[in-house]
Design a protein around this nucleic acid. Structure first.
Lengths: 133, 133
DNA sequence: GTCGTTGCAAAGCGTTTGCAGCCTA
DNA sequence: TAGGCTGCAAACGCTTTGCAACGAC
């Protein structure tokens, strides 16, 4: 039996969350989304961020960026193939262009997807460190 | 002032955990380590596995394998450079050979390390699926 | 006997869920 | 007004920590 389309309501909280992600220049963690969205929607709660983000991923408006050792980050879906850089110092995650992975696999293994994560120090942090000396 | 070397005791639990990891052919999760080590050390607790694994990582006997969306796995340290394959069906993690990543980064970013994770179906699972039809 | 180690249970931490009240359509 | 949405707090799953008993040396 086909599930009927259910009306999705347009609320202040959802608008705030979408706006934050729309403007983001890098993938954001739920905590970053919450902090940014609270500026335009005071009182916004954690649960709402998680619930909204989850539904945005389901409708393919957002893409989940899972990073080893860090909470899942989120970025706008539909970008061209790319990978990520996670800064050891500030924990921010950046998008990086280009993908040159061509792994050879044992027989019988079938690849569905791949993730490449680079770790290091981002530009902002390496500049800050230099300046503080 | 140099910290004096503290005697590390050789216990049944630690021996069991090390033995499991020594014999493992792929990175194991804490849960897998616990289950396997309990066979030779009944009553072994979770906390002991985490504590032991942590100290083995500190002394570079073990390497942590962090995987997006899964608990950290552990493998013997000192292996040659390689990456990992995570099976969507059985959640097991495998080691894969060869690394062909040569990312180009924006100016000012410095890379310390990188991780490549492939997702898909492992050989055992694709064989099992075929057999069950 | 000393003191590092262990198991248990409680605490953490990020994420999810139950629920009563709220607010969009 | 209906019922999807929200904030709060409790519940989760995995990992860490506090603590008294244990056992290696």
């Amino acid at each position: 039996m086909p599930r009927l389309e259910v009306a999705a309501r347009d609320t202040r909280q959802k608008r705030a969350i979408r706006a934050v992600l729309e403007r983001a220049e890098r993938p954001l963690s739920p905590e970053e989304i919450l902090a940014a969205a609270q500026r335009s929607s005071a009182g916004l709660g954690t649960a709402t961020v998680y619930r909204t983000v989850k539904s945005l991923v389901e409708e393919s408006w957002l893409a989940a960026v899972e990073l080893p050792g860090r909470p899942t980050h989120y970025e706008r879906a539909g970008k061209s193939h790319h990978h990520h850089f996670a800064c050891d110092a500030c924990a921010r995650v950046y998008e990086i262009e280009g993908c040159t992975v061509t792994p050879s696999l044992p027989r019988g293994f079938r690849v569905r997807d791949h993730e490449v994560t680079l770790y290091g120090i981002c530009r902002a942090c390496s500049t800050a460190k230099r300046a503080s000396r």
